[in-house]
Design a protein around this nucleic acid. Structure first.
Lengths: 192, 192
DNA sequence: GTCCCGATCTTTACAGTGTCAAGAAAGGCA
DNA sequence: TGCCTTTCTTGACACTGTAAAGATCGGGAC
């Protein structure tokens, strides 16, 4: 093996399959996504994926990892663009909801409990989850200290904020709320 | 037809199929639920459901209607058990999250955007949705007037609260948050 | 009562899916 | 050159959703 363990006939089929899955998930619910369709999109036979993934679920997990990385990156860049603790938290929330609104199926894929059981996530996913939790915790703690409030409240407040933002994201992603309802709702809750 | 339009050979197969679907959804994700499995559970052939539902989706929709009715009933009885506006709102939130925690698959079924497109829900579903929105709006307005605040803020506040409660429900239902995190989060947000 | 009609259910069939086992092809190493 | 391992393809099986054709049964017409 010269460069990569997965660079033989096709080039890098594993990455190509994840690419195809992420692309297809852009227009289709993960539940409807078929392994054979992904294989067709990648230009290989319907059984080729089984040499890189144990089953359909493993392929979807890998696609979910990629989406989660994008999702986290969107939040991190949004937070990094501001200095004020209030503005950072709002930016985080808007990035969170913005991703769900722009990529509803990818958002659903990221949080699908059957693909990523919250008990034992894949190692790669666990790193992303930890980084996301740290990001939120840091923003909340910074806000509390900037306001001179007890930082011990941070965990409960972080859960509450996560709930609010996640709920708005899910409702907007599923079409139950229009995107325009997000900003007023966030402002009504964040006390700005 | 003597009594009901659907009381011929089997008794009332339509209702029996919905029953079976709701029962199966208690232990299985709606995505995994197969039409043939529901038919087997009801003791009929795999094609029998097609005389009562256009396709698998219509059966799941009917099951979702039933779950949504239960979900709404849980909220209504919780609210009716209290007089204080603050307590009523908290009770509503706890009933909302409680249903998701106790019946995560049914909760997912109720909010599945492919089964109930928020644009045009079924007539039966539309009634339930309207009742649920009215219930929340009434609770929020009552709270604002009891506190002497501007009732014009009600819509934005209702969306924000819906977001918080829905997000906590989704996170708990999917296992991303433990149930114990709900009460502190709700109290941290409702300002009690 | 008998006959027929229509609603209900079953049987059969087909395409599509996930998954596995066996065989072909192609790169790396002797 | 020739072999061996990895990669991919082909073929098969059980399962799914769905449609069409046939069987079965209740209720109204005579």
């Amino acid at each position: 093996m010269s460069r990569s363990a997965a660079a033989y006939h096709h080039g890098d089929l594993r990455a190509a399959l994840v690419d195809a899955a992420v692309t297809l998930v852009e227009e289709q619910s993960p539940a409807r996504l078929s392994l054979r369709e992904v294989a067709r999109a990648a230009g290989v036979s319907h059984a080729a994926p089984y040499h890189h993934f144990a089953d359909r679920g493993e392929l979807l997990k890998a696609a979910g990892d990629r989406c989660m990385a994008d999702f986290l990156a969107a939040q991190e860049t949004a937070v990094a663009a501001h200095d004020d603790p209030d503005a950072r938290l709002v930016a985080l929330g808007e990035a969170y909801v913005g991703y769900a609104a722009a990529h509803p199926h990818a958002f659903a894929l990221v949080f699908d409990p059957e693909l990523c059981p919250p008990g034992d996530p894949s190692p790669e996913r666990a790193v992303l989850i930890a980084r996301n939790e740290e990001l939120l915790a840091r923003c909340v703690t910074d806000l509390l200290t900037a306001r001179g409030q007890d930082p011990a409240r941070a965990p409960a407040l972080a859960d509450a904020l996560w709930g609010t933002v996640h709920g708005l994201a899910a409702l907007v992603g599923d079409g139950h709320l229009p995107v325009g309802a997000v900003r007023p709702a966030l402002e009504a809750r964040l006390g700005l």
